[in-house]
């Protein structure tokens, strides 16, 4: 079986070195880059299965790299952030990253997150289905992994797709934060509500006509979220 390819991007050679070594030890083929432009070139060259991306990069920062990749691919991306505050993390998630690891991080943690992200992606692949879920004008094609809203295709990341599918399966029911986080990201993410918040925000951007005044995904303040089966006239 072909080994999965991991693209590691960091300008700190020492960090790059140990991350690479550990991933290789976990069974990945490694591609690496030290600048943003190099990262994009490597992405095109190697078509990686996962990308570990530092935010602070010369020439083009990691957020921009992430956004550019997201335009063409749903590949899982884990951001490495050095600035300790949440703002960085949220920016990363908003740019389309699936997860983030703050510096300094333990090798075990990085590997665990890589696995979690890979698992989420694999789950999608493992459950091929021909079913379609219809909520008003929102159609989720589980087989094609495609979402159309008002006849137009919306491009969702695997996490977003998984979240939408999960909620759509339990339409018109309030889903608490914890349940959603556990179901989509994994048990270890139970308390990371900002992941959920960012993803819901991105989903709304993609499927709601007016994201500020959502029609499908409604907030149940302090509890969780609910997707509504909107009736179409």
């Amino acid at each position: 079986m072909k080994k999965p390819v991991a693209l590691v991007v960091d300008d700190e050679s020492n960090i790059l070195r140990f991350v690479r070594a550990n991933l290789r030890a976990s069974g990945y083929d490694i591609a690496s880059a030290t600048t943003g432009t190099e990262a994009l070139a490597q992405f095109e060259a190697t078509n990686p299965d996962i990308i570990i991306l530092d935010i602070m990069l010369p020439e083009m920062d990691g957020l921009e790299v992430c956004r550019r990749i997201r335009q063409v691919s749903d590949v899982p991306i884990i951001m490495i952030t050095a600035k300790g505050d949440m703002q960085d993390a949220v920016e990363g998630l908003n740019a389309g990253a699936d997860d983030y690891v703050p510096k300094p991080f333990a090798v075990e943690e990085l590997l665990a997150r890589v696995n979690a992200v890979m698992r989420r992606t694999k789950n999608n692949l493992a459950q091929p289905s021909t079913d379609k879920i219809k909520l008003g004008n929102l159609i989720i094609d589980l087989g094609q992994r495609q979402v159309t809203i008002n006849g137009q295709t919306a491009h969702l990341t695997p996490t977003e797709f998984k979240l939408l599918t999960y909620m759509a399966n339990k339409a018109d029911k309030v889903l608490p934060h914890e349940e959603l986080l556990e179901a989509i990201w994994g048990k270890e993410y139970r308390d990371c509500t900002h992941y959920l918040r960012v993803s819901i925000g991105r989903l709304r951007q993609k499927i709601e006509t007016d994201p500020g005044n959502p029609e499908y995904i409604v907030t149940c303040s302090g509890v969780g979220y609910m997707i509504r089966n909107v009736k179409v006239n």
Binding site: F18, A21, K83, G84, P104, F105, V107
Partner: peptide, 18 residues
């Protein structure tokens, strides 16, 4: 500062852990 501190620290931490 945190970046400047964290980067070497990460390398040290990661390398040592590895």
């Amino acid at each position: 500062v945190s970046h400047e501190l964290r980067s070497p620290l990460t390398a040290i931490y990661g390398s040592a852990e590895s």
